[in-house]
Design a binder for these strands. Structure first.
Length: 373
RNA sequence: UCCUCAGUAGCUCAAUGGCGGAGCAACCGGCUGUUAACCGGUAGGUUGUUGGUUCGAGUCCAACCUGGGGAG
């Protein structure tokens, strides 16, 4: 089993004395990742509206792509012919692919689940496709990301106990099938803890996934519509049940506040569509909370999006200019805000890391939570 | 000068003689392993003007004003 992990290692560098927040280094075949880290999402093998050079400039250390979307278009076999996702998109840093498990949740009305797997209808043309743990592994191995995710059943919120239990147990059986189907040694398969919003299920799922040797472990099924207190409870409850010496990935999270809350509770990796989706919708992060470039108050504002940010956008452009572009429907505005939002979250995760290394994460947490609210 | 068509929210247009609406623009908000450059909310009116007919007029009648088209 060990040879599977030869190309990966994780070193827990420091644990903040007061909070237990963690700083680490995850070594992958395409480079090291300094945790805690925010990972931008590039579903279709591009972080929407952001070119690679701009993405490198944000300090992105690893990006996500999606198996389901790339299987439908352009096709995982084609990507494999282009040298896997790194060659395909000419990105030389680590990549993580999601398994399609989130689409069990997000495309709930377009899919049918069975023990064997999930039948999806393509939202674009209605054609049926069947994805099983084995198919997901095949897709993800062709795509060739450094980190691949188990094919899971992400349950909705709210979710009754019986369904939550069924989703969790099936996720566990599917995990075993993923492990059996996986043959590549240059990819780390992360198991996913499910269990919806029930302590006993979360405990059982955390114990199950922890019993399986892996480079890192994910917490799935959160940030699916529940309130913050609920999410924080289940992160706080679940994270300590996962192996202490392995990275913990909280899937689909989040906002700057969510990063603070997650890191405080022992999370090491985050991904979220918010920085890019919100950018396309005109919303940007600042040290003092999010705002909307559409607001009339920015019409003549000569300041950058965030005065304490040194991203390409903030170094070069004013709020007035970006607002003008946005109101004119110029995609450049969305691209500029995307760059800013991504760098903002990555910087934020790395500042948190520095605070952890210096045993001052609690102050960092309090100070930023105050400013962001 | 005459004929003709039109005039309703910032814009483009709806509304049998019976509570004046929509889309866009404006303003504001939401978005969490992307079906999302999306979704939602708010505001916005002396229906060109003045008279008339009518229980009741954006709607019918008259005059005028403004604009388009045509004739001379």
């Amino acid at each position: 089993m060990n040879e599977v992990f030869d190309n990966f290692s994780y070193k827990l560098v420091h644990v903040d004395k007061k909070t237990g927040a963690r700083a680490g280094v995850l070594h992958t075949p395409h480079g090291d990742i300094l945790t805690p880290i925010f990972m931008p999402v590039g579903t279709n093998s591009t972080v929407k509206l952001v070119t690679n050079n701009n993405l490198y400039d944000t300090g992105a250390q690893i990006i996500l792509a999606n198996s389901y979307h790339l299987y439908l278009r352009a096709g995982h076999k084609l990507i494999e012919e282009f040298g896997g996702i790194h060659g395909w998109m000419n990105w030389n840093k680590p990549v993580l692919t999601d398994s399609g498990g989130f689409q069990v949740f997000s495309l709930a009305h377009l899919r049918k689940i069975s023990e064997e797997g999930v039948e999806f209808r393509d939202p674009k043309d209605g054609k049926k496709h069947f994805i099983s743990p084995e198919v997901s592994m095949e897709i993800q191995q062709s795509i060739g990301a450094d980190i691949i995710m188990a094919f899971d059943w992400c349950a909705p919120y709210p979710c009754d106990y019986d369904t939550a239990k069924e989703a969790m147990e099936r996720t566990h059986r599917w995990l075993e099938r993923c492990i059996k189907a996986k043959t590549s040694v240059n990819q780390a398969l992360f198991p996913i803890c499910q269990g919806a919003f029930y302590d006993d299920l979360r405990r059982e799922s955390a114990a199950f996934v922890s019993s399986i040797p892996a480079v890192g472990y994910a917490i799935g099924g959160l940030s699916v519509g529940e309130d913050k207190d609920t999410m924080n409870h289940f992160v706080e409850f679940t994270a300590p049940l996962l192996p202490h010496d392995k990275p913990r990935y909280l899937m689909g999270v989040g906002t700057p506040e969510d990063l603070l809350d997650g890191i405080k509770r022992g999370i090491d990796m985050f991904d979220c569509v918010l920085p890019t989706r919100n950018a396309r919708h005109g919303s940007f992060f600042t040290s003092n909370g999010k705002s909307q470039i559409k607001n009339a108050s920015y019409q003549e504002d000569p300041k950058p999006l965030d005065e304490s940010c040194d991203c390409y956008t903030c170094k070069n452009h004013t709020r007035a200019y970006i607002r003008h572009l946005y109101k004119c429907g110029e995609g450049t505005a969305q691209a500029l805000i995307s760059i800013h939002n991504i760098k903002f979250l990555i910087d934020f995760s790395q500042k948190a890391r520095q605070a952890i290394l210096e045993d001052r994460f609690e102050e960092f947490y309090n100070e930023n939570m105050e400013k962001l609210s």
